[in-house]
């Protein structure tokens, strides 16, 4: 137990250091402020519509839906951009400014270093998501007059979606010398992760005997099984569609632990790939 605590102490200090440095990054702060502005703006926009269309029950529901739609889109887009940006840049930046030399020359193994960096990134991603979600909750609370608990489930699933993309972007960043390639890689993972059902379609349709058809089909099939299927996390928008006081439907409640396990499995895979790349990387 003591050995495990000793082993994790170094990564923890690195994680805190990464967090403290990360939250000061201008690009990240810019994305965050912009997203908070949009979330806050959605509330005002709905207030404006309310004044122009009346204040009946239907209008209130429309307003709430408007706030939800804008906020969900904002959290998804800006949250994902922040996730990709921070996951892509932490390790390459440390190599570039040589901080990594001073850290790895201490009694810190590469596995510990990566663990610290990865945890630090997750702390940043979580803090940003929590801040955006909090504002979203406040906006809905003011509009509906009750605390929308179901939003928390949606936010939790959003985090695990970010975690999957973050882990793979982080793995790519461990092989890169700058943040450009991992950023592109992260966007690719995000986009293809949302298109994996189409890959299955491509695989099913390419049943011809021509070599090109077979090859395309097999590639699509391979990618379908390798790439994370981020569409699985789309139940978070279904949850948002439920009325605030309603309980979580059993079929949705059943999926949540599976999705968390799914996200964790991909995150561990991403971390293992990152370590495999980084363990013999020449710095």
């Amino acid at each position: 137990m003591s050995a495990a605590v000793d082993y994790l102490r170094g990564p923890w200090h690195i994680a805190v250091f990464t967090w403290r440095e990360g939250i000061r990054k201008k690009t990240l702060v810019g994305f965050l402020l912009l997203s908070l502005f949009v979330i806050f703006g959605s509330f005002f926009m709905s207030s404006f519509l309310n004044q122009t269309t009346g204040s009946g029950q239907i209008e209130t529901e429309i307003d709430t839906k408007l706030i939800k739609d804008i906020c969900v889109a904002t959290i998804s887009i800006f949250g994902m951009l922040i996730t990709i940006f921070i996951s892509a840049s932490v390790v390459p930046n440390e190599v570039e400014n040589k901080v990594i030399y001073t850290v790895l020359s201490k009694p810190v193994r590469r596995m510990q270093y990566l663990l610290g960096k990865f945890v630090g990134i997750q702390m940043i991603v979580l803090a940003n998501l929590m801040l955006m979600t909090l504002l979203f909750l406040i906006a809905i609370y003011i509009r509906q007059g009750e605390f929308p608990k179901l939003l928390l489930w949606s936010a939790l699933l959003t985090y695990f979606e970010f975690l999957v993309v973050s882990a793979f972007t982080f793995a790519i960043s461990c092989s890169a010398s700058s943040a450009v390639l991992p950023t592109i890689g992260g966007l690719f993972i995000y986009l293809t992760g949302n298109l994996t059902e189409y890959l299955k379609d491509v695989s099913n349709r390419s049943e011809g005997t021509e070599l090109a058809d077979v090859t395309i089909g097999r590639i699509a099939d391979g990618l379908y099984y390798i790439l994370p299927n981020l569409q699985k996390f789309s139940i978070k928008t279904e949850i948002l569609g439920l009325s605030s006081g309603a309980p979580l439907p059993p079929e949705v409640a059943e999926q949540i632990p599976n999705l968390i396990a799914y996200g964790l499995a991909y995150a561990v895979s991403g971390y293992v790939i990152a370590y495999w790349i980084f363990r013999r990387k020449e710095l």
Binding site: F17, R20, E21, N97, K98, V99, Y101, T102, S105
Partner: peptide, 9 residues
């Protein structure tokens, strides 16, 4: 170890 031109936050 003191690297050349290292950056400290």
């Amino acid at each position: 170890y003191l690297p050349e031109g290292a950056y400290y936050p």
